[in-house]
Structure formats: structure tokens, C-alpha cells
Design a protein around this nucleic acid. Structure first.
Lengths: 140, 140
DNA sequence: CTACATCCTCTAGTGACTAGAGGTGCAAGA
DNA sequence: TCTTGCACCTCTAGTCACTAGAGGATGTAG
């Protein structure tokens, strides 16, 4: 039960100090107890919650999704169907994003390949941007 | 040389009306002439500039990059090395983003597969988020 | 002439932080 | 004991690229 400062919590969780305070402000993290000098003092359980949040953010979950996942974690006896649904929705988003980025990559590659490093009026980069009809990928 | 209203410009370019005004505000688009009743009145050249901007935004270029690309388009005799560099930088960004999304997708798939739809305390989704060591993909 | 869509300006809100100002707490070295 | 200096505190405002809404003016079809 040894308490740690916000700076130490930041170092151990990988979440920056102002971000920790921000998470407290929006209610993702409980208000920690304070030292005599009014400084935040965290417990190990806060640390694992912060790590949970950081990991979920890295996976691209929005704060509201994380709020839902955390409330599930806080009530471990209920069904995990909600957690599953949140993760599945995120998976679909990621798959769509990958598809559109692949199309985009192809288009950018064409632009870059077509550029003969001459003058702008012969540049394929500018040309493709100016006239969408030049673009072979119409997925966007 | 027939003038069009902002609504028509929005319909033809695919850029929403408030967004057109926003682009004018940040200087991506010149201030158009006005009707007697103070309404914006656009020319075909504004329309192609808007299309250029929309296409570049769809390709994920930031406004500052678009500003640079537009200034190149306005001076077609200069070298297109800058345009090439901007497009290449964007291509590298996109490739990185795709790589990290692929890792993420794999991790989400594992989470979803591992979920036996039981109770939260046996749920792999929650477990993986809580303990990063559970995660087989450490690229993030 | 009257609806009604479209236009105008302006301010404020979005998400998820980040930066900075202006001040206090705390631990270590001289 | 003093002081240096880092870490901490609160609060406000800024980021990006828009989007929403208030409150009012203009333009057009019937």
C-alpha cells in the first residue's frame, strides 16, 4: 500500500502528468488522496487503471469506449458481451481505415512515381490533386 | 465567366458551405466578389481550387501542406521538388500508419477471438487491456 | 406578397490532449 | 539554515479542422 506521486505514476504507466490530471478531470480516474501539501498520492490500483487506459488509447479506443470498458472491469461478474461488442466495433473501424489507407498509398505512390522533378506545370503530384479524374483509385 | 453562389459551389466541389467559409477565413481561398446583397459569388477557378483542396484533404494532407501545394500550383514555372517532397513525406506517414494499424488489427482479432462470451472476469478483451504482457504484439 | 430556402456574421463546441502562467512543496547540498 | 532547483499545484487558453447554432438579411417561386 505504498503511495506514489503523480510523476512516478506517469513514469510507471507511460501516461504523461498533465494527461493523468486530465483523466481525473473527465472522470476516468478517481480523485486520489492528497499529501499534507495537497499533492496527489496514488495507489497501485490507480497505476493498473492508468495502464489499462493507456493501452486502450494506443489501440485507438475513444475515451467514451474506455469509460464503458472500465465500468465493465469494475463489475467483473456481468457478461462481457458489451466488451466484445466494443472491441468488434473497433476492429471493423480499423479494417476500414486500413483499406482506405491502402488505396491512398497506391495513389500517393503513383503521384510520386509520375513526378519527373521538372517544373510544376508538368508535375503529376499537382496534376492529380487538381483533377480527380487523373486518379485511378476512386474509392474515396 | 458565370458566377455561382456558395451553395452551388459546395454542391459542385463536395466541400460544405461552412467549410468553404472556413477556408476563406484561413486564407486557403481568396475572398470572392459579392452580390449587391453581400452574398459570395464564385468563379470557375475558385471551384477547381476547392476541388484541389478537397482531394488533398481526402489524401490526408494537412492544411499547411495544402497551402504549400497551392502556392506551387499558383507558380507553375518553379521546380516541383517541393511538391514531390510533400507527397513523399505523406506517403511515409501513410505507410507507417498502415503498419501500426495492421498490428492493432491482429491484437483486436486476438481479443475478440479469445472472448468466450462468459463473465467479464474471464474476458480476454478486458484482460489484454489490463495487462499488456498478455499482448503478443509489442510494436506499439 | 408571402413563404421558404439560402445566405450572412459571430460565437462556441468538438476530442484528447498540450502549453504556459504564476505560484507552492519538498529534498539535498553548502 | 539557507538556497537551489525540480516537481507539484490550479487555471486558462491553444491545438486541428472543422461543426453547430443563434439571430438576422437576401433571393426566388408561386
Amino acid at each position: 500500500m505504498k503511495k506514489i506521486t503523480i510523476g512516478e505514476a506517469a513514469r510507471k504507466s507511460g501516461v504523461k502528468v498533465p494527461t493523468i490530471r486530465y483523466y481525473e478531470g473527465i472522470g476516468l480516474l478517481r480523485e486520489p488522496s492528497r499529501s499534507e501539501g495537497n499533492q496527489r498520492s496514488y495507489e497501485p490500483s490507480d497505476l493498473s487503471r492508468l495502464t489499462f487506459i493507456r493501452h486502450a488509447r494506443e489501440l485507438g479506443f475513444e475515451v467514451e469506449a474506455i469509460r464503458a470498458l472500465l465500468s465493465l472491469q469494475d463489475n467483473p461478474l456481468q457478461s462481457c458481451a458489451t466488451a466484445d461488442a466494443i472491441a468488434k466495433a473497433r476492429l471493423i473501424e480499423v479494417e476500414q481505415r486500413i483499406r482506405s489507407l491502402m488505396a491512398l498509398k497506391a495513389e500517393l505512390e503513383m503521384m510520386v512515381e509520375g513526378c519527373g522533378h521538372g517544373r510544376v506545370d508538368q508535375c503529376r503530384v499537382i496534376e492529380v490533386l487538381a483533377d480527380h479524374a487523373e486518379c485511378r483509385h476512386h474509392g474515396h
